[in-house]
Amino acid sequence: MKLNKRIINCFEQKKRAAFVTFITAGDQDYEKSLTLINSLPKAGADIIELGMPFTDPIADGEIIQKSTQRSLKTGQNQKKTLELVKAFRLFNKKTPIILMGYYNPIYRYGIKKFIKDAKNAQIDGLIIVDLPPEHAQEVSVPANKQGIDFINIITPNTNIKRIPFIVKNSSGYIYYISINGVTGGSVPIFYEVEKAVKLIRKYTNLPIAVGFGVKNRNSVKKLANISDAVVVGSALLKQIEIHCYDQKTAISNVLNLTSRLSRGLVKI
């Protein structure tokens, strides 16, 4: 298995937790989306999770559902999402890009072809929400061969006996979902997240990112103290939703919020 250097470097160089932003590829439109991701690292994003839009996002709350619909309306598809990353890489060689989404658009694209094109676009990792470790090898094996990490999810509902099985099949980092619920939902209970992260650490040396329900600087700060990375998605996309008729404001608000929240990351 090839290791992805970009993700490793990202975690090794940081003396604090990493800040991960989730944005749907093609939200608003392709150009705006590119402008936004080009600007995110400077605003404070250490890793960008780029959502691959899908018509039926069953693990997502209303904000990401709407973001997905806006993106699909402009004709966004897998090919364009890969092009977006290629365009981003022209000016940024450092920030890891993780594609996140659902299995069907990848399956339809053809797994082999997708991995080849993803490698070509310098994608660093994949998170496929509806591809649990039971089936993940269909994708994770060819992905790992190309140096693309396959990031698995652990939730508060995950049985402790499953954790070794999940981490064994993971690379890059572990995505710990802080709540039993869809994205943008209720606020996580910190001491429970802390307990869970400590437990997962017993089974793996991989960095642990925490996401779902992270809405403000205070949450970011608390989670940064107990994990290796904090993921924010819905809170950012909410800004695009509110300002959908004023795309410039939408972009600057997302960037402002990114920089405000990322300043919540304290030294650990």
Binding site: I58, A59, Y103, V129, D130, L131, P132, E134, H135, N152, I153, I154, T155, N157, T158, N159, R162, I166, I177, N180, G181
Partner: peptide, 22 residues
């Protein structure tokens, strides 16, 4: 054991639901 009839079926759901269906 993966819930597959040939290549069809399976349990393609998010991790949150896996313990419930098990």
């Amino acid at each position: 054991h993966k819930g597959l009839f040939g290549n069809f079926g399976g349990r393609f759901v998010s991790e949150t639901l896996i313990p419930l269906i098990i």
